[in-house]
Nucleic acid binder design. Structure first.
Lengths: 365, 365
DNA sequence: GTACATGATGTTTGCGTAAACATCAGCCAC
DNA sequence: GTGGCTGATGTTTACGCAAACATCATGTAC
């Protein structure tokens, strides 16, 4: 019994040796970190007192606290988060499930989530889904089931989530970005409709007869909403929506779509559903000798950092990803804390950023 | 009592009633998930047998296994990872510390890390560092100290890591991306030098007298290495390196630097340290009436997806971020498993992607 | 038939922490 | 001074899991 001869008092005295021994005891040959008990022995207090100091509870003498802190430092003590999580029943971790990080929006949102979460003392665990297939999504969620998270933020179309028939750990709260499922989930999203409307109005106000649209992929809810809003804004203004041209968000797809649009002389204004496609579009127009903005005006969506360096600098709709991320964390944590499954959609406003790719039409009219 | 009439089989019998009670016991009013004990009671076996089934050990009768699985399903049992981690002494989690996710490289590497880690049954926890200041870095690491991770991958300059004087939890293994500190850490990185050399050679082979360089920020090791290799390649070829122009990786900074370069008639070829700066450079050259590639050849680094849609499509050096991420995970897990602190640097090769922004010089020579 | 292996299962224990409860000294009121 | 009362600290316990060990049938060798 190494601890048998411990002198009571408040002070370790001869027991200090045993404490040190214990602190560097091994498990399976590997050095283990010191536990609360080790600190307690070295400081000559009970482990509960160490716990109190560790968690910053009142009711510990300044003297005792100092002693404990010193012991912690000497042993290099750090709380074992597994034990802590087990005891407290929470992990202080948020899981984020997202598709490919190749779109600016997802990345910026993720970054904002991580930053906000850190601020709240939460860690963020990343669950990438390589492909938007049911199997992949289901795989991610089944990994999630075994994962140590208190809440989940899903950055993806909710219909894929439903389609995957995932069952989440029952107590895990979910917030979804990019969806219209506000009646089933808590949703935080950019005001896609408002931004699209602003883009269309901007072009109409410049004097264009109508506005063409280079839309995103069919299975994207965000793309769908931008397209719907484009159509609605035109109809409201009494204009006839031209046929829809679709891309897949990539610059290449924008280029291919642009090849079609470039040969249509009647097309003087295009609203691209994101900046990357607008980039490809600019290239296609350029190659066909159609000047921007003299012959064709182009407006994008997102306001990626490079947009101001396009040729010409791109007029676009700015999204506040940081705010989206912040609101996601706030929403999901309020659900965790209050348990309430508040549903509904929160929209983050957008802002039109006029640059050099839009101008009044010059050829016709 | 729905389960009360269950016949004992191997045991409890009258005790079964308590099982149901316990399975739906509450904690602080909130419903708790079922534990192994609950499953065991319902299945009429010991919790150890449940554990065996849960972990796929042999030595369980098919009959028993079925019963246990059925009970698990009925109760919606999922293993508590905190308890598991506490018991096993490992978290199956890798922490990733990184600066801003606004650079393609970091993001792509992160994504590859997450994917590889998932493959190995590991989760990835993200620790963002908002600003490259010592305080921020130190903050990230102090959060890390309380974090449940077995290993850490650092995507940043190691000198910042050292400067922050961080002490990592002793048993946590580290792998660093983007550094030359292979003698102190395990480093995985792109072959910056090889890629830069290839870029310079490509331009010289086209007949350019020399190659200008639009370098990255001074505090970036990657930028430093690209710059060094550029200089070395020129010197080797007997050319005189022109003065260095620097940006900060952003397209805007490339534009500003481009304004300087555009007015220098003797500049016929530029090697930009990344594609974003190349984009800004293209814009500046265009605005000054200098055609690319006829008057000036431009080559980038990274091969971001948009590079093929630039005006003109950008010749660039392709980085295999997926491979970098994969190797990081492999390296860090081998350290975790073998405990060996193998140091040294692993380089991932690059590949030159010729597109339309480079050509033989036409004006002079 | 006894002894002894084998395989299936049950029992005990402890991981590190923190809540709940217990103790104990000092202090105040009357 | 006796009976609370307060504040500081110690003791017990349980969180959920899985390793280590214990048990107990059954089968098999001689």
């Amino acid at each position: 019994m190494d601890t048998a001869e411990r002198t009571p008092a408040n002070a370790p005295g001869p027991a200090a040796g045993a404490a040190a021994d214990n602190a560097r005891r091994t498990r399976g040959g590997a050095r283990t970190t010191a536990s609360m008990a080790d600190v307690a022995r070295l400081a000559g207090v009970s482990s509960q007192t160490v716990s109190r100091v560790s968690n910053g509870y009142a009711g510990v003498t300044e003297e005792t606290r100092r002693q404990v802190l010193a012991a912690m430092k000497e042993l290099g003590y750090r709380p074992n988060s597994a034990a802590r999580a087990l005891k407290r029943g929470e992990f202080r971790t948020i899981g984020v499930i997202t598709f490919t990080l190749s779109t600016t929006g997802n990345v910026r949102t993720l970054e904002a989530i991580a930053t906000s979460a850190a601020h709240e003392g939460y860690a963020v665990t990343l669950l990438p889904v390589a492909l938007p297939t049911q199997d992949e999504v289901r795989g991610a969620f089944s990994r999630l089931e075994e994962l140590a998270v208190d809440a989940v933020i899903v950055i993806m179309e909710v219909h894929l989530l439903d389609a995957a028939m995932v069952r989440l750990p029952p107590h895990v709260q979910v917030v979804v970005v990019d969806s219209d499922a506000g009646d089933h989930y808590t949703v935080v999203d950019t005001d896609q409709a408002g931004g699209s409307r602003a883009a269309v109005r901007h072009l109409l106000d410049l004097g264009h007869r109508t506005v063409w649209h280079l839309g995103g992929p069919e299975d994207s809810f965000a793309a769908q909403r931008r397209t719907d809003a484009w159509r609605a804004a035109l109809t409201e203004a009494g204009r006839v929506p031209p046929p829809l041209v679709r891309g897949d968000w990539s610059a290449d797809s924008g280029y291919r779509a642009g090849l079609e649009l470039a040969v249509r002389g009647e097309c003087t204004a295009v609203f691209a559903a994101n900046d990357q496609m607008a980039l490809g579009l600019l290239r296609a127009l350029h190659e066909h000798g159609r000047r921007v903005p003299e012959d064709v005006s182009v407006i994008g969506f997102d306001d990626i950092p490079e947009a101001s360096s396009f040729l010409p600098p791109l007029t676009t709709v700015h999204q506040d990803f940081a705010e989206v991320g912040r609101l996601c964390v706030q929403a999901v944590l309020s659900k965790v804390r209050q348990g309430g499954p508040e549903r509904g959609t929160t929209l983050v406003p957008t802002r039109l950023v006029p640059r050099a790719s839009t101008a009044p039409p010059q050829g016709s009219a």
